[in-house]
Amino acid sequence: MIRYYNRKNKAYEIEQVAGEKALNWTYSSPLGLNLLEIVIKKKMFSSLYGWYLDRSVSRKKIGPFIQKFNLDMSMAEKRLKDFASFNDFFYRKLKSSARPIDPDSHALISLGDGRLLAYEKIDLDNLVQVKGLTYSLRDLLKNDRVAERYQKGTCLILRLCPTDYHRYHFIDSGTCENTEKIRGAYYSVNPIALQKVRKLFCENKREWSTFHSDHFGDVLYVEVGATCVGSIIQTYSPQKRVSRGEEKGYFKFGGSTVILFFEPGRVGIDEDILKQTELGYESYVLLGEKIGIKLEASEI
């Protein structure tokens, strides 16, 4: 059972986990763990399932998925009958009115929908995966020079569940560099898996890029794939100016994670999110909502 904090009603809720029984069995039983290492974490497994979800025959999964997780489809751009496949539905676009962007340009907004953890004054060699398990930003990026810039900075981890909107966006206006791609495994990023696999984010397939933002300095975006995520799709154009809230990319089927790193002294995260992180709970956020503020020189 996974509990998270709902900022809107200031209460804890229980997450509806897609494939929860299979997930628990895979990461808890000896047979499941063996199958995980031999088959499930491999690219072939996720690619094959992703191929099926791109086919029109997978449309039959859409209705039951919507019903089981009580998804509000009134916010989607397409009508239900217009989705060509399950993946087409999974990474669906939303109407512009569905996720209003906080109007204050100095407000730090969420890059997407999901469950958020926030850490300040980070130690590059002891980033928190879950309580008791850590990893290194150097290992995550495979680039020591870039990693060093974020020592004592801020780290945000946004976990996207299969039931969430699966597009991610820019938190500010600015320009973004080319994406660096790192091959890896396809472990789940669900908390159940994070408690079992050491340095999971450094094991999984991932992509990273540096975003030169107008208000928050150089922000590091790291997109992490997961089980059944056949592709991480970047839709932005490198070196071309983007607007706050503009789309950066999307994930195909599966739970996924985007991790942001800020240089020291750039942002202050909202107290409720920091408090819940300290208590061990993720905070549920939506694209465009305020999660922090730009720090001025006098506040550093």
Rank of each mutant, 00 (worst) to 15 (best):
199 K>I: 05
113 D>T: 00
29 S>G: 03
245 G>S: 02
277 T>C: 14
156 L>I: 08
95 K>W: 04
33 L>S: 06
30 P>N: 09
175 T>R: 15
30 P>Q: 08
166 H>N: 01
292 G>D: 03
259 I>R: 01
194 L>Q: 14
27 Y>A: 06
63 G>T: 13
267 V>N: 08
88 D>G: 04
243 S>W: 02
265 G>P: 06
236 Y>N: 06
197 V>R: 00
80 L>I: 05
122 I>P: 00
76 A>T: 10
29 S>L: 10
10 K>F: 07
259 I>G: 06
158 L>W: 02
44 M>E: 14
271 E>I: 05
11 A>K: 15
169 H>L: 11
230 G>K: 15
237 S>G: 03
237 S>P: 05
162 P>L: 09
2 I>W: 15
5 Y>W: 11
177 E>D: 15
178 N>P: 01
80 L>M: 13
273 I>S: 10
143 N>M: 04
277 T>W: 00
52 Y>F: 14
80 L>D: 06
235 T>K: 01
174 G>T: 10
204 N>T: 02
203 E>D: 08
133 L>M: 10
83 F>S: 01
239 Q>F: 05
283 S>T: 08
68 K>N: 11
98 A>G: 05
25 W>A: 13
270 D>F: 05
297 A>H: 15
47 S>E: 15
132 G>L: 02
263 E>M: 08
55 R>W: 11
300 I>L: 14
182 I>E: 02
217 G>E: 09
207 E>Q: 09
122 I>D: 08
143 N>I: 03
254 G>V: 10
235 T>F: 09
300 I>V: 09
158 L>K: 03
128 V>I: 14
217 G>N: 05
281 Y>E: 11
270 D>E: 11
246 E>A: 12
71 L>H: 00
199 K>N: 14
157 I>N: 06
229 V>Q: 02
178 N>Q: 09
82 D>Y: 09
20 E>N: 03
33 L>A: 05
184 G>N: 12
299 E>D: 15
105 S>C: 07
236 Y>H: 12
239 Q>N: 14
259 I>C: 12
199 K>L: 08
